[in-house]
């Protein structure tokens, strides 16, 4: 799995109430949810990310509630991959389960800057920063998690195996 795009970058401990506030929960129109993604820290986020695709953040991204609307809103806002120093665990699972690629890579999280052009190879655990001519390596995801991402999420993965 290979994802390409350019970087939009934010800081540490971005919580789920900032990613999608409680008042928007229950909205089933995902495009609409996407328009509210991260509006708490950047009202222009959903416009920016459509042009860029790669969200780079610091540590403990997605801390807080279990709301799956958080990765869903980011995905529908146009995020193709999230690179973080670390993720909050429920957010990490939720992102994989809805088929949104995420990568833990402290080095990339530190060195990538707004506007950098990157290529992320998930199966090989390699991130290439074309703008700075740098390569960052990360742990390869377990095989079954890569399978879930390839299938587009846990629902499709289970449907293929259980029915």
């Amino acid at each position: 799995m290979i994802v390409r795009g350019s970087v939009v970058k934010y800081g540490d401990n971005i919580d789920t109430d900032v990613i999608v506030p409680g008042k928007y929960l229950g909205i089933t129109d995902y495009e609409e949810l996407g328009r509210h993604a991260l509006e708490g820290i950047d009202p222009d986020f959903s416009n920016k990310i459509k042009q860029t695709g790669i969200l780079v953040v610091g540590e403990n991204f997605g801390c807080g509630s279990s709301r799956e609307e958080a990765p869903v809103a980011l995905k529908y806002a146009g995020v193709k991959c999230i690179i973080a120093k670390s993720f909050a665990r429920i957010f990490y699972r939720n992102a994989i389960n809805i088929g949104l690629p995420i990568v833990v890579c402290p080095e990339a999280s530190e060195k990538l800057d707004n506007g950098d052009i990157v290529t992320v190879n998930l199966a090989e655990g390699v991130i290439i920063n074309t703008s700075k001519n740098e390569v960052y390596r990360t742990k390869v995801l377990p095989e079954f998690i890569l399978e879930i991402l390839k299938d587009g999420g846990l629902v499709a993965y289970l449907r293929r195996r259980l029915t």
């Binding site: 799956e68 389960n97 846990l154 289970l158």
Partner: peptide, 17 residues
């Protein structure tokens, strides 16, 4: 805690990772 899809998978299988 887990998200909705993880919980749906448990409803279907009784298991989780």
């Amino acid at each position: 805690g887990m998200g909705a899809t993880d919980v749906a998978a448990i409803l279907a299988t009784g298991e989780t990772w």
